[in-house]
Each structure stands twice: as C-alpha cells, then as structure tokens.
Simulated scan of single mutants.
Amino acid sequence: MMTPAQADEFYARLAADRPNPKSDLEYVNPYTLLVAVVLSAQATDIGVNKATRPLFAEVRDPASMVALGVEKLEQAIRTIGLYKTKARNVIALSHILLAQHAGQVPEDRAALEALPGVGRKTANVVLNVAFGHPTIAVDTHCFRVGNRTGLAPGKNVQAVEEGLLKITPARWGRDAHHYLILHGRYVCKARKPDCTVCCVNDLCQFQGKSI
C-alpha cells in the first residue's frame, strides 16, 4: 500500500494529466444522472449515452418518466443489457421520488439506496457528481487501479472503497472518483495496461508493469 505522501503525489499527477475530470455518462440534471447510472450497470457508458440522448431530450424528470411508462421506456433503452429490469426500476424509483421526495433526487445515501436499482456504487456516483460529496464509487476500473498500483489494495469492493477513502488526501476527495475511473479506463486497462505512457509509473507497485 502507498504512503500518504505517495498517494498525494499519485493524485497530483493524475490531476495534471486530466485537469478537468468528469463522468463519461451524459446527463442534464441530478434526475437524469441517476437514471443514467442505474442504466449503466453491466453496460458501457457509450451504449447508455446512445440510448439516453433521445430519451433525455424529452424526459428529464420523474413525472415525465412515469407518463412515458414501462413499455415505451423499454423500447427507448432496448439496446442496453437487462433493459426490461432496468426499465421497471426506473419507473418504480420515479414513482418514489414523486411520492416521497417532491420529485427531487435526495441528497442522502440511505434515501438513494432505498430506491429500486440503486446500490452503494450508484449512490456514491450521484452524491459525488450531482452534489459534490467526496465519495468514491468503486467500479471495475477503481477496483483494478486500487489493487494493481498498490494505492488501496483490497479483496472486495467495500475494502477498496474504505482503503481509498482512508488514503486519499482531502484536497483530492471531490475528483478522486473520476481520476481513478478515467485512468483505469484509458491507461491502466485490464488486459494490457499502457505502462510506458502512465504518469504514475514510478509510484505504481504493479510487479508486471513495463517501464
């Protein structure tokens, strides 16, 4: 595991490499962000964006989504994996937002995780991206980077998240989630990491890295 000083330098270099990190998912407000993240489970951001561009041009709030209905939503997102289950979850969570939260996405972890199709990772993304909380949503990229580099190794997602929250300096907390995801997606890739162009190569503890 890295030392706090190494972790700070690690993030400083990622920040220099990608000074304006942001989610690859396209959205127009907290509600469409929530829907996009729910749809992105076991799917690519590119695939989700292709389906949601025309959808979000017309549907941008829970009331409009409920009015659209399950069948039309299924047709709109049919190119996304598990689209039938996801459509039911989106309609159900939209009903709950209208009934319990005045149609607004709650800025509260427990309330978010109580919504259909929303787990800890999704709640972390919404809290971070929509509301600026220093949460770290550990997806496959974060999990890989945390373990491979030695930044925050752990046997499961929860362990890596706890390790990242502990080792990440406060000044990087707001954007740490995006730094790690983007680095994992475009540089520290699963099958063949681009170690020769990696900005944190010398800090990385991966024994199989190329120099």
Results as ranks from 00 to 15, higher is better:
181 I>A: 07
155 K>C: 01
83 Y>P: 09
126 V>S: 08
166 K>V: 09
44 T>S: 15
178 H>C: 05
96 I>P: 15
164 L>P: 05
175 D>F: 09
108 D>T: 11
102 A>G: 13
71 E>Y: 02
112 L>V: 07
24 D>H: 06
122 T>L: 06
101 H>S: 09
45 D>H: 13
47 G>T: 15
173 G>Q: 04
24 D>K: 06
43 A>M: 12
104 Q>D: 14
208 G>A: 02
159 A>W: 00
117 G>A: 13
12 A>G: 12
113 E>Y: 10
22 K>A: 14
164 L>Q: 02
121 K>S: 13
51 A>N: 13
99 A>W: 14
41 A>Q: 13
110 A>S: 12
107 E>Q: 14
171 R>E: 08
167 I>W: 06
165 L>T: 04
133 H>I: 01
123 A>K: 10
137 A>H: 07
40 S>C: 12
43 A>F: 09
97 L>T: 14
65 M>L: 14
12 A>V: 04
69 G>T: 03
33 L>I: 02
167 I>Q: 10
209 K>H: 00
1 M>N: 06
140 T>H: 06
38 V>Y: 11
13 R>F: 04
124 N>K: 04
71 E>T: 13
132 G>H: 02
137 A>E: 04
2 M>I: 09
89 N>H: 15
97 L>Y: 13
46 I>H: 15
208 G>D: 05
150 G>F: 02
148 R>L: 00
209 K>I: 00
195 C>E: 01
158 Q>A: 10
174 R>L: 10
83 Y>G: 07
129 V>K: 10
74 E>R: 13
146 G>Y: 03
37 V>E: 08
107 E>R: 12
155 K>M: 03
11 Y>S: 08
149 T>I: 01
191 R>M: 05
141 H>T: 00
141 H>F: 03
176 A>P: 08
6 Q>T: 07
186 Y>S: 11
18 R>I: 09
74 E>D: 07
106 P>K: 12
150 G>H: 01
170 A>V: 06
67 A>W: 11
200 V>G: 00
146 G>F: 01
5 A>W: 07
92 A>G: 10
138 V>E: 05
38 V>A: 05
15 A>T: 03
108 D>P: 13
56 F>L: 06
124 N>Q: 03
58 E>A: 14
168 T>M: 05
152 A>F: 00
182 L>C: 02
145 V>S: 03
52 T>S: 12
78 R>N: 09
136 I>T: 05
186 Y>H: 10
33 L>P: 14
6 Q>H: 11
7 A>H: 06
150 G>T: 02
23 S>D: 12
160 V>H: 04
47 G>E: 15
177 H>L: 07
20 N>L: 06
35 V>M: 12
128 N>Y: 04
101 H>V: 12
163 G>L: 02
155 K>Q: 10
105 V>S: 09
200 V>W: 00
158 Q>N: 05
